[in-house]
Amino acid sequence: MRRTAAAAVLGAVLAMGLSACGDDDSVSQEDRDRASEAALEEVGEGRVTEVEKGDGDDPYAFAVEVTLDNGEDVEIQLDEDFEVLNPRR
């Protein structure tokens, strides 16, 4: 029982730490959803693992990391209108 409780606490602490470290905190939920949808439409499969907002030096407005079903990670870059800047097709 103690081991289970310790594992649960450790998992919660790690989850909080990982979410606090991400750069995607400045992305609104609406933008996150739109960027995720655009990226998944481009690659056709997988799951979104991160959405970042570009800063003034980046050539993109959003960068979306997708883990494909085969385990490969890809980054899809989008402009401010959620159009793909680096097509994969």
Results as ranks from 00 to 15, higher is better:
72 E>N: 11
14 L>W: 10
18 L>P: 00
10 L>K: 09
34 R>E: 13
50 E>T: 05
79 D>W: 09
62 F>V: 06
82 F>R: 09
23 D>W: 12
62 F>N: 02
72 E>K: 14
75 E>A: 12
79 D>N: 15
77 Q>C: 07
26 S>K: 14
61 A>Q: 11
28 S>G: 06
61 A>G: 09
16 M>P: 00
64 V>L: 04
68 L>A: 04
2 R>Q: 09
18 L>Q: 10
20 A>D: 12
40 L>W: 00
78 L>T: 09
41 E>A: 13
69 D>Y: 01
45 E>W: 01
32 R>T: 13
8 A>M: 13
1 M>Y: 10
24 D>S: 13
73 D>P: 07
50 E>V: 02
84 V>I: 10
76 I>W: 02
84 V>D: 02
5 A>S: 11
32 R>N: 08
13 V>R: 06
36 S>C: 04
85 L>E: 05
23 D>H: 12
34 R>Q: 15
3 R>E: 15
11 G>H: 04
74 V>Q: 04
12 A>T: 13
15 A>K: 07
82 F>Q: 09
77 Q>D: 14
3 R>A: 10
51 V>C: 04
39 A>W: 01
30 E>I: 14
49 T>L: 04
3 R>K: 14
7 A>T: 10
46 G>Y: 05
12 A>D: 06
69 D>P: 03
9 V>Q: 13
60 Y>F: 13
39 A>M: 01
49 T>P: 00
75 E>Y: 12
64 V>S: 01
40 L>G: 03
85 L>F: 00
4 T>S: 11
43 V>A: 02
77 Q>H: 14
37 E>V: 01
89 R>W: 10
16 M>R: 11
40 L>F: 04
56 G>S: 14
85 L>W: 07
82 F>K: 07
75 E>M: 13
19 S>N: 15
17 G>I: 00
59 P>G: 09
75 E>I: 14
53 K>I: 01
89 R>P: 08
64 V>F: 03
72 E>Y: 06
83 E>D: 15
81 D>N: 15
78 L>Q: 07
4 T>R: 14
11 G>F: 05
51 V>T: 05
68 L>R: 15
68 L>S: 08
16 M>S: 10
38 A>M: 05
40 L>D: 03
31 D>F: 04
59 P>H: 13
66 V>W: 01
87 P>N: 10
20 A>K: 04
10 L>H: 10
85 L>S: 03
53 K>D: 04
24 D>E: 07
52 E>C: 05
15 A>N: 07
28 S>I: 06
69 D>N: 10
50 E>A: 07
35 A>R: 05
12 A>C: 08
51 V>M: 04
64 V>W: 00
29 Q>F: 06
56 G>Q: 13
47 R>D: 11
87 P>W: 07
34 R>C: 01
80 E>T: 11
7 A>K: 09
41 E>P: 05
73 D>Q: 13
38 A>Y: 00
